[in-house]
Design a binder for these strands. Structure first.
Lengths: 338, 338
DNA sequence: CTGAAAGCGCTTACAG
DNA sequence: CTGAAAGCGCTTACAG
């Protein structure tokens, strides 16, 4: 492999000069620059990031930490799209992405390596379960960092999330407009930082507009898996005065609920309206197609990464939390009650 | 951040000695080793990988290249599980994973950076579409590499894949045993290296055992998306002597086919038997639950990474291609014809 | 079992 | 606009 010395020799300049054209410094004459460029091409030179990282304290690598958590929750395509967004954006800026998917049960050692200065220039974390990512330890290293999802401390800085409150609000308002007054909720786990609180708030906001309040005995909980949706739907649908509609905090649980409904002879949407969240590809293919709130995970990843770069480049030290719009998608799983 | 010098000073030894305990060299006295260990802990020392990489030509990073290809094909949880397998295995060996998800349309520049020696110690590639990963350029750098999926050149070295032939064979044999003689096939795209050829061969093998041969006019093609399964099923199900069973090369297309069947009034499995491939989480939740061939993507990632480490450590130069068993799962979407 | 010293391939003040 | 030289934090023969 060619080194900077080889390039310097061939272009008849010093390594300092090569380094300067490498970093696009303006103070290099056009002809010198061209000679260096030619030599680099000729030699198929590409700089050693290890050497560069060692001397400049810049690695051109960012870390991406996505908790692996339970098998169920994270087979979601959602996560893959976030990763895609981060990866693509990083590449566009000449950065590489180091991926860590720590398991929940394991100590945070799996991403300790990331934290060493000179190893990554910053990190994007996907916040999910409370207490999962060791904020304190991360803070200690003062690495630039942005979170996708809500910060544990609800600190509204350097984090990106979907407009979960609005999504839930629109979903429930839609049900109310259709005439539903008995609305049940299948929630995600309460220790799941991503969105659960915000969505519950959205539900309350919509109900309040109609002079109603949220009856917590009509809220059941799942872990975002299809199975858990099935289970969480059972008690709700078995009640004597069962809800005529269900707001479910992700599409996969909504599928489980739909399955349960059909099992006990309830037809969606005639006997039961169903609103999901996420808009996974399957949502529009099932029968009936699911009314749901679309999120934009690629954009979450993209924006998070862009913000990280502005932190890294000291363009800003912190920024207010960014909210990515959602889109309410009406399909066939909702209708007037009865 | 503490450096190796700080540790050396505190432990009253040379940096050479610190380096030796770092690499677990046996020739260090127990008490010296302990002093060094104590100092490292006291100082919260963790070695700079950049420096280590520069001097040793070992980076403790492996590259993982997974083509992004079409949006449809790769929202599969399958891909995420492969990544998980690679990541976990790498971490267990103290390695980090650099992820690249090049887009198909873009030149291979996005992973060029990987190829620089001293940047990664080896790479795992996920082979999908023909010609997508520039083998020649990779070969030039002579980086240790293992492929998940089939190599373009069908070279049976340093690659890992599921037993696709056997999976297809079992699926079709199951249909034959049930009495089906008119069996259609919904195939993946033919330029998709992963498995399509092998699965087609499995179909032929099963048919041959029953004295039948594959009628290519009963083979249609999709791109692994739900929608494409729906479309590919249409002509097959519209034929006057329509097949009584369909072998579909992934579950998502099988879902699309199921949707199409129900649309034109065919009941699964009474009027049409359906066999999928992959066993995605949804397969057992839909109605009827899908008979399918389970793959083990985490294991694909795990084994690939283990093999890569044995290449990196020069334990072997190449190994014969490894085949990961599949598991045939009979559920409710298959029955006797008529 | 331990250490002095060179070297990995860059970048960065600094001088000219 | 260009270059000599120090330094980033490790590892690795080599000597003892």
């Amino acid at each position: 492999m060619a080194t900077i010395y080889d390039v310097a020799r061939m272009a008849r300049v010093s390594t300092t000069t090569v380094s300067k054209v490498l970093s696009n410094t303006p103070y290099v004459s056009a002809k010198t620059r061209q000679r260096v460029l030619d030599a680099m091409q000729e030699l198929k030179y590409s700089p050693s990031l290890a050497a560069r990282g060692l001397s400049s304290n810049r690695t051109y690598v960012i870390g991406l930490i996505v908790p692996q958590a339970s098998d169920h929750s994270f087979k979601d395509p959602f996560l893959l799209e976030i990763i895609q967004g981060v990866e693509r954006t990083a590449n566009d800026s000449g950065y590489n992405v180091l991926l860590s998917m720590p398991e929940r049960s394991v100590s945070q050692n799996s991403y300790d390596r990331f934290l060493h200065p000179g190893y990554v220039d910053g990190i994007v974390t996907f916040e999910t379960f409370e207490g999962f990512i060791a904020d304190r330890e991360l803070a200690e290293y003062a690495l630039p960092r942005v979170s996708i999802g809500y910060r544990e401390d609800h600190q509204e800085v350097n984090s990106i999330h979907s407009d979960d409150r609005l999504g839930a609000y629109e979903g429930v308002k839609h049900l109310l407009e259709l005439g539903h007054r008995h609305i049940g909720v299948i929630s995600g786990p309460t220790n799941f930082i991503v969105a659960v609180d915000a969505r519950l708030q959205g539900v309350r906001d919509a109900l309040t507009e109609y002079g109603l309040s949220l009856d917590m005995s009509w809220v059941t909980y799942g872990d975002f898996s299809i199975q858990s949706g099935y289970q969480a739907a059972s008690p709700l649908l078995a009640a004597k005065d069962r809800p005529t509609a269900l707001f479910v905090m992700n599409d996969r649980m909504a599928l489980g609920a739909m399955r349960r409904a059909s099992e006990i002879g309830l037809h969606v949407p005639v006997d039961l309206s169903l609103v999901g969240f996420d808009d996974v590809p399957l949502a529009e293919v099932i029968e009936p197609p699911l009314t749901t709130i679309r999120q934009f995970p690629i954009e979450l990843g993209t924006v998070a990464t862009q913000q990280l770069f502005s932190l890294i480049n000291n363009e800003t030290v912190q920024f207010p939390s960014v909210v990515i719009p959602i889109e309410f998608v009406v399909r066939g799983s909702t209708a007037c009650p009865g």
